[in-house]
Design a binder for these strands. Structure first.
Length: 345
DNA sequence: TCTGGGGTCCTAGGACCC
DNA sequence: TCTGGGGTCCTAGGACCC
């Protein structure tokens, strides 16, 4: 049977970081596992990256301070975040997906869109789950949709481990009464601003006047919000690897830095590390930014454009130090960050 | 519960040029 | 003469996502 829909699948690994940890330590299966920071829940200024479903039952969520997680779930196993291992596991999963008869667009560590296939999307979704589990030992939810947005939102209903389908036929039935911040791309701030102009639910958005929303939210964002309410948007799945536009390194210190020399030293380290990394990858740097977070949590950024793109580590480092001179450092520094941007081509 | 790290994209306003 | 209009580049900040 031919389908009137250009199907897209969205694949999302279940509790990815925790699942990877459980895979290498099977004795953890069934226990609440919390991954984040150094894995020491007595340390401040560290947060949960991923909590296993067992830990989520205690109310533990991503982004929660580890100390708060430990209060809610004192018996949990706390593990440090091990980026290299997660990247490797992610590569395994993506390689597995690429062997299936579909284009694969990687969307972060634990997500991908699949498109450009023919045939039954339900059968492919089952095949995705079966193959990923067989070859990597990891489980995933799969969303089926006729746009990327619908596929992505569908996955949420499939979690964990299930399959769900959202199309133009059931979009508003399923999501129409939900608050706007249920949408992928609408957060609490935008939801509040939408509510202020009388838009409360997903179904309110396609009824809204695009021009009026453009007045409130800008020429791109306004019409995009209306589209979002319809579940519309891109149907393109692009297998080309994405070329990063920027790269950054940042550190929150266990205790605020109060000594100017210490701040300078740490910034120098961050800038050098980052510069060496991107230079080794053959990516000349065009812009350099420095970010500071004060104890008050205000977080200004200063950025400069270099006269020309450079692969000279010393030039990048000194640009960062020049930017640092434009900040007040007297009241202490909670976080220091450096970002470099590349020329688009 | 005192709030990580790594990204992307959009908007607003000023500078500058014709 | 008291004030044009468009285009582009740059910076700073905000919002959002995983």
């Amino acid at each position: 049977m031919t389908s009137p829909y250009p199907w897209i699948l969205h694949v999302d690994l279940d509790q990815f970081l925790a699942a990877v940890e459980i895979r290498r330590r099977p004795e953890l299966r069934g226990r609440p596992v919390i991954v984040g920071g150094t894995g020491d829940p007595t340390q401040p200024r560290m947060v949960v990256a991923t909590a296993s479903y067992e830990a989520r039952r205690f109310g533990v969520r991503s982004g929660m301070p580890l100390r708060a997680a430990a209060r809610r779930c004192p018996d949990a196993v706390f593990l440090p975040s091990d980026r290299a291992v997660y990247q490797e596991a992610s590569d395994e999963v993506m390689a597995t997906l690429r062997r299936l008869p579909a284009r694969v667009e990687v969307w972060g560590w634990d997500e991908a869109f699949l498109g450009g296939f023919s045939g039954d999307p339900q059968a492919l979704a089952v095949e995705v789950q079966r193959t990923v589990l067989a070859e990597t030992g990891l489980t995933c939810a799969v969303g089926i949709g006729d746009t990327k947005l619908r596929a992505k939102m569908a996955t949420g209903f499939g979690k964990p481990g299930g399959i769900y389908r959202l199309t133009r036929d059931n979009w508003l039935t399923v999501l129409g009464d939900e608050r706007t911040d249920a949408l992928w791309g609408v957060g609490s701030k935008t939801a509040r601003r939408l509510a202020a102009v009388g838009i409360h639910t997903v179904a309110d958005l396609p009824r809204a006047d695009s021009a009026e929303l453009a007045e409130h939210f800008g020429p791109t964002t306004g019409p995009w919000l209306v589209q979002l309410g319809r579940g519309g948007g891109s149907t393109q799945v692009d297998a080309q690897p994405r070329i990063a536009r920027s790269r950054s390194r940042e550190t929150t210190f266990p205790e605020d830095l109060t000594d100017r020399t210490a701040v300078v030293d740490r910034l120098r380290e961050l800038a050098r590390e980052l510069a060496h990394e991107v230079v080794a990858e053959g990516r000349p740097v065009r812009r350099v930014a420095v970010k500071i977070r004060y104890p008050s949590f205000t977080t200004p950024t200063r950025i400069t454009t270099l006269p020309e793109a450079t692969s000279d580590v010393a030039v990048i480092e000194s640009a960062a130090l020049d930017l640092l001179a434009r900040f007040h450092l007297e009241r202490g520094v909670r976080l220091l960050g450096v970002r470099v941007e590349f020329d688009r081509s």
